Simulated assay, not measured.
Amino acid sequence: MTAKYPNKEHVTYATFLSSNPREKVGGVEIGNQFTKVVVNHPLQENEELVRPMKHCQTIGDVHAEGMSIAWPSICLDA
């Protein structure tokens, strides 16, 4: 995965879970421009989340908690 667009720096390796716009992350639907992922290996733990959640603000936070996050689809490398 890459950092906030338009930056293309890799910040984590993650597993794709869903692109269904009705899928929820942190109680909020991900919508059409996001995908649901789980962080497997953070490369930059201090990278801020594009959509922060109540108890998680960075890639490192969600990795430590084992939580899924919403990440912009445009920032995913295949």
Rank of each mutant, 00 (worst) to 15 (best):
S18D: 08
E48L: 15
A78L: 07
C56D: 15
T12A: 15
F34P: 02
L49W: 15
Y5P: 04
G26D: 08
S73T: 14
V11R: 01
P42T: 01
N40Q: 10
H55K: 15
M53D: 09
E23K: 05
V37D: 01
S68T: 06
E45I: 02
E45Y: 02
I30E: 05
V25Y: 04
Y13K: 06
A78Y: 07
V50Y: 15
T2D: 00
T2P: 03
A70V: 03
I30R: 13
S18F: 12
R22T: 11
K24F: 02
I59G: 00
Y13G: 01
V37P: 00
A3R: 13
G60C: 11
T2R: 07
K24S: 08
V39I: 15
N20M: 03
N20D: 15
Y13W: 09
R51M: 09
G31Q: 14
G66I: 00
E65I: 03
S68E: 15
G31T: 15
E65V: 11
V38T: 04
P72G: 07
C56V: 00
P42E: 03
V50L: 09
V50A: 13
F34R: 06
E48V: 14
T12P: 03
E9V: 12
A3N: 13
N32W: 05
V25P: 06
C75H: 11
Y13D: 01
V38R: 05
S19Y: 02
K24R: 13
Y5M: 12
G27R: 09
P6Q: 03
K36L: 14
P21I: 01
S73K: 12
T15C: 11
S18V: 04
Y5G: 10
C75I: 01
H63C: 00
V37W: 04
H41R: 09
D77C: 02
W71I: 03
I69K: 07
L49N: 10
K8E: 12
Q44Y: 14
Q57L: 07
S19A: 12
L17E: 07
Q33E: 14
V50Q: 12
P52T: 10
N20F: 02
